[in-house]
Structure formats: C-alpha cells, structure tokens
Design a protein around this nucleic acid. Structure first.
Ligand SMILES: [Mn+2]
Ligand SMILES: [Mn+2]
Ligand SMILES: [Zn+2]
Ligand SMILES: [Zn+2]
Lengths: 160, 160
DNA sequence: ATGATAATGGAAATCATTATCAATAAGGAG
DNA sequence: CTCCTTATTGATAATGATTTCCATTATCAT
C-alpha cells in the first residue's frame, strides 16, 4: 500500500528505520541486525563479533560497538547490564509490543530467564505509575527496566 | 532491653551485623558506613574515596571497593548501574523497609530521582509476581530492580 | 559515474575494577 | 594487658571492556 515499501528485494524491514534517522545502510549493520533478530539470547558485543567472523572475517569489534550504540539510540535494540561486567544486547520490539518481556537474573550462575507472564498486570500498574510519576516529578518516561534477582532452579538445589 | 545491646559506646548498629558474618570491624569499614548512612546520594567508589581522604588521608581506593563489596554481600548496601560507566552505591534498609524506593533515571543529564510513591501498589504486584514466577520457574527471588528512564523536568524543557 | 562525507577497522588509549603481596592491625587466648 | 594468628590494608601493577584516533573505504545523492 505505502509507496515507499521495498519488500521482496532482500531488504530487511529495518532499512527504512535506519535510513529514516539519516544513517547509511551498510553490510556490517545489516549483519548485526541479522544476528540480533534471529536469536533470543542476550549477546555481548564480543559474542556478536565472533559469530560474524565466519561471514565477515574483516569486521572490526569497534564497528560492532558502534553499530550497537546506533541500534540502541534508534530504539531497535535494548542494552542490559546483568552484572557480569559486559553489556548485553537484545532486539527490541518496544515496551508496548507483545514480545516485550523482563528478566530473572540468577545471582549465582548468571543465567538469564525471559518472562512474559504477569506482564499484563504489570502493564496496568506501570501505566498508572508512569502517569503518576510523570505528573509529580514532571519526568517524561520513555522506558522502564524490571529485573528480579535470586537463585535459578539449579543453583537453588546445589545450594542445600 | 536486649542483653546484647551495645548502644551508648560509640558503636554503630552495624557492628553486630558485620561481626555476625565473621568479618572484623575496622576503622575503614566504619568510615565507609558512616558516609553511606548519612547521605541520600548515589555515590561511586571514588566519590566515597574522596570524601574520606580528609579524615583518612591514607585510606586506599582498593579498600573502598573491597568494603563496598562486603557491604553489598551482607545486604547493607545496594549496588546500582545507572549507565554512567561506574557502579553507584546506596545504603539499604532491605526491600521490605519503608525507606525502600526505586529510581527515575534521566537519559539526558543522568540525574537520579528517588521515588517512594506508588510503592504500595507496586509492592502488591511485586509480591504476586514474585510468587507466580517462583512457582513457574522454580526461581527463588531475593530482590528486584525497577527503574524508569526518560527526561527530567529540566532536560525536557531544554529539549523543545 | 563522481564527489562529499559517513562508516570502517586496526591499533592505541581510557578508565573502572581486580589481583598481588608485603606490611599492619583486629581480636581471641592466656 | 600481651602475644599470636590471620584477616585486612594500601601501593602498585594488571585486567578487560569500551573509546578514541586516523588513514582508508564504501554509501548514496546528484
Ligand atoms: Mn530477554
Ligand atoms: Mn536511591
Ligand atoms: Zn543459577
Ligand atoms: Zn536530565
């Protein structure tokens, strides 16, 4: 329907997004997005770097960092700190998408678990809270972070 | 009332806590706790280091880091990552204390705002959620992190 | 196809946090 | 209170993730 639609020519849906911010589309950015959209893992910059080295032996780690920063800035990717000393990234469908989820972080082994359960109740409370906080502090909320810390099933057993 | 009470001899309430974990009480640990309990700011290790240098010109930054790690491990202090590249610390009264609060983080200027509003509703939802998640994932939750990101009043204005 | 300029990648620089290790001090035993 | 074991400290070096630089390359509007 939209005249600008370029589907069917091998272009990812993200081209328009990137270009819309005035950035150029490059093979490296394509490659990083390709990986990010195909995994549910929480990859570090170096994880991505290693995965790409097969396909692009000359890609630089610096470029991975730069690309991730761009993707975070334009809202395509979330950046997380799970406490293991390196940033971790995950594709983002935005805080209102049905795939939006939060995390359980095992403080023992570092395992990360996605959960979408209870998100509906959460969403309701979050909306109220965001509205109240915006009003009280004149703070314009754009996003939120929720994480639960504790022991995963395995670590909880080993604990005993 | 309690026979073990040591008030009135210059000992902080935290002595028993630290000793209870088998750690020795030192002037340095005392000093760090003294600062942490007297501020509502979110200090970095270096912040604390500088504040202490007047009183203890010989205290080492390494010791600050070690002490903070100890305090976090024993639950007296919370460690946060607000995205400015350094860890920030804050005294903890525990997730069930009336002083327990969450944060608004300005993504523009980095300003951190404590809020306790809506905590009651939050607590209710958190309890339900924690219970549900514990059951579904066999995950033993010990703590949680909630942060809202956006623009503070000042940055929102300047934005326009 | 051409040119202006944004993007890349290799290497060096940053900078918060850790590891080492000899010197010091806490606190239980006597 | 003194002694002794051993946790703790502090100076320094090491680590490691992320940035900065800058010459080379690639994108894309014209
Ligand atoms: Mn996730
Ligand atoms: Mn706070
Ligand atoms: Zn675990
Ligand atoms: Zn601000």
């Amino acid at each position: 329907m939209q005249s600008g639609c370029r589907r069917g020519r091998g272009l990812g849906w993200w081209h328009g997004h990137i270009r819309g911010y005035g950035y150029r589309m490059t093979a490296q950015r394509e490659a990083v997005l390709e990986i990010m959209t195909k995994t549910r893992e929480h990859l570090s910059a170096e994880d991505i770097y290693h995965q790409l080295h097969n396909l692009y032996p000359n890609i630089g780690l610096t470029t991975i960092y730069r690309t991730l920063e761009l993707l975070v800035d334009t809202g395509l990717v979330y950046k997380f700190d799970f406490g293991d000393g390196r940033a971790r990234y995950e594709i983002s469908e935005g805080p209102d998408s049905p795939d939006h989820h939060h995390h359980l972080v095992c403080t023992c082994c570092g395992k990360i678990t996605n959960y979408t359960d209870f998100i509906d109740k959460e969403r309701k409370l979050l909306n109220e809270t965001e509205m109240g906080l915006s009003k009280k502090f004149n703070f314009k909320i754009t996003n939120h972070l929720i994480q639960f810390y504790g022991l995963c099933e395995k670590c909880n057993k080993d604990e005993k």
